[in-house]
Design a protein around this nucleic acid. Structure first.
Length: 313
RNA sequence: CGCGGGGUGGAGCAGCCUGGUAGCUCGUUGGGCUCAUAACCCAAAGGUCAGAGGUUCAAAUCCUCUCCCCGCAA
């Protein structure tokens, strides 16, 4: 089968790799344009582009999707099917209708739960113990198309969005190939999503990382995991921004105003929350690298009673 | 040339402004105490102060350049 692959970040790479190992012919790849990144402002290539170049495959990086030029280019590849994993743009009808077998999307959640751009992060933030991959036939909505295949995967207690995403991505690749095989064989029946059960997983912004100490300790711990490695959970100590990379909720009830440093020993740092105590395990201050609380406390003197919270300005 | 912070024994930091004996909290090693311990006590080892040049009687500290790391912003 002639397949066009559309995808952009690291999460999309295993999908592409899986297709490359399959018997299908990848006739073209579409990814987002190079963008300025990093400390300088140098352009960097999306991970999918690097794979395309390695394989010497035809590549498009359209600035705009809804142009006749792009549609013509796509059509010239004559795809039977378009596979989409984390491309980063909504596809409109002219593209969706182009391939005879339709557009198949790999989504990182058990749809209809967690529709949107950040399904992995939100599943962890909400303390889910399992999530999964859904393949679906795309329509014009945001992850609203009929479901093709679905497979579950556990979320481990120590999982962050950063550790969970690669496992989901690999599963996504496997399920994508399986989905295409069954579509080709005609043994797969798409079934409509139960839209009443739908929840959203909107794109995270930097500000979403700011911790609200009024929440309960368990919810904060989940948030720290779900926001790692991006955008990162953070709070303020005075004017200084501190990232919290690992934390665990304790059963000890909070005695102080939420955000108050409740206890400091040589190796531990405990903070009062709206309900319960949060022990910080790995942190990162303004211009330093992330480090364990033990390391941090070796060089910094903290005293109980200090307050974390939003910066006042 | 997007903005800013930093590089000091193995780790994390102070010292720099106002040049003049290398400091703190840990870790490591040895010893002691203890039923015991990530606890406590005693002692020891371990540093070209990122690198190069300059100023000076004297540079971790002041000046110039280079390399590397980090945060913001995207």
């Amino acid at each position: 089968m002639r397949i066009v692959f559309m995808g952009t970040p690291e999460f999309a790479v295993p999908s592409l790799e899986a297709l490359l190992k399959s018997a299908h012919q990848i006739v073209g790849i579409v990814t987002q344009p190079d963008r300025p990144k990093g400390r300088g402002q140098s352009l960097s290539s999306p991970p999918v582009k690097l794979v395309a170049q390695r394989e010497g495959l035809p590549l498009l990086q359209p600035l705009k999707i809804k142009t006749p030029d792009f549609l013509d280019a796509l059509a010239s590849w004559q795809p039977d099917l378009i596979a989409v994993t984390a491309f980063g743009r909504i596809l409109h009808a002219p593209i969706l209708n182009l391939p005879p077998m339709g557009c198949v999307n790999v989504h990182g959640s058990l749809l209809p739960k967690y529709r949107g751009a950040a399904p992995v992060q939100w599943a962890v933030i909400n303390g889910e113990t399992e999530t999964g991959i859904t393949t679906m036939l795309m329509d014009e909505g945001m992850d609203t198309g009929p479901i093709l295949l679905q497979e579950r995967i556990p979320i481990l207690p120590e999982d962050t969005a950063g550790t969970l995403a690669p496992r989901l991505a690999v599963l996504g690749g496997r399920l994508l190939v399986e989905t295409i095989a069954q579509l080709k064989a005609g043994t797969l029946a798409a079934r409509q999503q139960d839209h009443a059960q739908a929840t959203m997983a909107p794109l995270l912004k930097k500000e979403d990382g700011l911790l609200d100490w009024g929440m309960n300790a368990q919810a904060l711990a989940h948030r720290v995991r779900g926001l790692s490695p991006w955008p990162g959970a953070y709070t303020f100590s005075g004017q200084e921004r501190w990232n919290i990379w690992r934390a665990v909720a304790l059963h000890e009830p909070a005695q102080d105003v939420p955000g108050t440093i409740a206890e400091v020993t040589k190796h531990s740092l405990k903070v009062a929350t709206g309900n319960g105590t949060l022990e910080l395990l790995e942190i990162q201050t303004a211009n330093s690298k992330r480090m364990s609380v033990g390391q941090f406390l070796a060089g910094h003197r903290l005293t109980p009673g200090g307050r974390f919270g939003a910066v006042a300005n």
